[in-house]
Design a protein around this nucleic acid. Structure first.
Lengths: 212, 212, 212, 212
DNA sequence: AATGAATGAGACTTCATTCAT
DNA sequence: CATGAATGAAGTCTCATTCAT
């Protein structure tokens, strides 16, 4: 009795995910408004009505697509070994790992950037708020990192961590945006390297002892 | 004969501008898709048909709105006395002037940020390209500034100016985005100050002699 | 072998009735069109598909709901002791009993009035015909009563019983409709009393001898 | 300048009325729910969009159709010479005139009855309220008539005019409903005559002096 | 040049019904 | 017999655009 139920349940979850993924694709590629329900269901190969068994409305699925995307980003970051860097050198190595991870996530899915940075905020006020609050979240996370560096002594003690966090994230978003222009891997690597260099040089404590 | 024609011509230009401004307002506030031609013409007080005597389509006026906006930004920057800073100290002072100018422009018109950073890219692929190419333009301008600093010796000689330009602009866009969340003037000033500090510290040549 | 079958049979009948009652409720409260199959089965607690094992279509169950309703009304009237009034006095007393019975039936179930008088006729032509033929049936029953009175001599011998039956029923329907506006019991009682008074005074034979 | 404007204005009013009439037809014949916007505009010969230039929604036009219908009924009644009957004889003659007028109005437009008595109340709660409040209005008008009769002395002084008004209207609605069954003119006339007879006999004051 | 009524394609959504499990 | 996911026809409404006045 549990078997057939769970099989159906599984099938449902599959269908739901297929629709969700198709919507993600469409929204990222053509944009939210240019995407019709018909586009989505045609991609999946189900009927229009089926869409509405899984999602209440077009607006609703966008919310869930974003939930899903943010969850994936969070998971990717959470998967990074959480050791706390003790020196600027440690920090450098961890920063590189994080940069690589994010680069990977976004490389695998340029659609994510397009959706998050180009499309979402234009849907409606509610969505704009969500995107801005995502920025706020990212700032908070970054600020925590920086604060740790200040506490550990390898970042300047007078650092305005909140502002610095925004600035650093701004550079990261610039790199993400740059990806969308389809640059050569070399150019992209040079950008990320430059960004890291800027971060170290500008945030590092003056005390040269802690930098190795 | 030239007089009445020119008066009519003037009147036409006025109407065109009124419609353009109304469209700018609407697009920035409600977004492109949520704005209907009816919204625009109602705001101006003309009939629907009149719109199509000045613009070919809704998509067309968006292009012209953006042309106009980018021209205004360029003009604002061009209005800054173009003296070339000779030292890091000069650069600091000029950077502050530029920051102030941009802050002013955007303060007067948060709508411009909203339109450029949140709305435009979502309209269609063509528009997304335009926005990305605006980033490229901004990068080029910034790179020219930085290159001058390298040439003048107050920026690091090994600086990857293109990458650095992107990074710096990323921070500036972060500040602009931050404005949209309606922060206190104090918080905003601290952010711009932090950004400038990051720029000086990270780009300055190591030779301390050239910094005053 | 008959036993388990009959038990299953009984269970089926129960389910059928539950669905029928739920449909009655929904149709009367929200109206036929505003009621979806989903509303009905949710109320009963069965699946959508189950509905179609007992009824061919939404239209079909409405027919059966009405069959049921008319049967209930007929039964209620049939339950009244069928003695035939011999004088206007007798008639008065019986009329009061009938009025009370109908009032009771409808009080218990304002939904019945709503369904029959407000909703049903609007569904489609076929249904409108059914409602009108219900009026015809009610006229025939009423006419039989009145005819008896004419035959017994306490109603005017020149009475057009068919027309009078329609008129009397019209007053009764007015009373029923009045119930839907949620009047005070007092107001409602005064209306039924007035209707009875109108009937006696207008139908009574002129010969005063037969009135007590 | 007034001419072309007024011509367009006139044309608009015509189109509005054509759509209104077509909707009236459709609603009365097929019912509100069975009528689609497409039915209405096809009947008029305009595009779907045109409908929405004159009416906000399907529900909106129903409201306006009813406004229109009730206004027509009111106008028809208002057109009756408003002399106040001084005796039961006068009343009889006026009642006959009113009956004839209503009969005419409804004969010309059985659709009105169908819409008002069979269709409207089933649309939604709001509409049901409107129909019931129409009954209330009709009761009030009828009650005013009866009150006048009581005051003038040709109706019983102990008459409960409100209840009687409801009862009398109930009979009139019964007659209207009867019309829908397409009876012979003879049968219909006999019904109206019977109703009038019931009214005179049951409401007349006992004093025979005032009846001529 | 200005008007604004008319257009009609196309979008989203609902829901009665079917059918494989 | 019960289930409920899938279906797809059909309906309402919006809005960019056209064109006769």
């Amino acid at each position: 009795m549990a078997q057939p139920l769970s099989r159906m349940e599984r099938r449902k979850q599959e269908t739901r995910r297929e629709i969700l993924d198709a919507a993600f694709d469409c929204f990222a590629e053509r944009g939210y408004h240019a995407t019709s329900i018909s586009h989505i269901v045609t991609k999946v190969g189900v009927a229009q009505g089926t869409f509405y068994q899984y999602f209440q409305s077009k607006r609703d699925i966008l919310d869930q697509v974003l939930d899903d995307l943010i969850a994936r980003l969070t998971d990717a970051l959470a998967a990074i070994p959480p050791q706390e860097p003790a020196s600027l050198g440690d920090y450098r190595r961890q920063a590189e790992r994080i940069t690589d991870t994010l680069t990977e996530v976004f490389t695998a899915d340029l659609r994510a950037i397009r959706l998050l940075l180009l499309q979402a905020a234009a849907v409606d006020e509610e969505m704009a708020r969500r995107v801005l609050s995502f920025h706020t979240l990212a700032t908070a996370l970054q600020a925590a990192y920086l604060q740790h560096g200040v506490d550990a002594g390898y970042f300047r003690p007078d650092l305005d961590v909140d502002s610095a966090a925004r600035a650093v994230n701004g550079m990261l978003f610039a790199a993400a945006t740059y990806r969308l222009t389809d640059p050569s891997p070399d150019d992209y690597d040079r950008l990320t390297a430059t960004i890291r260099e800027i971060v170290y040089r500008s945030l590092a404590a003056d005390n040269p002892a802690s930098t190795h």
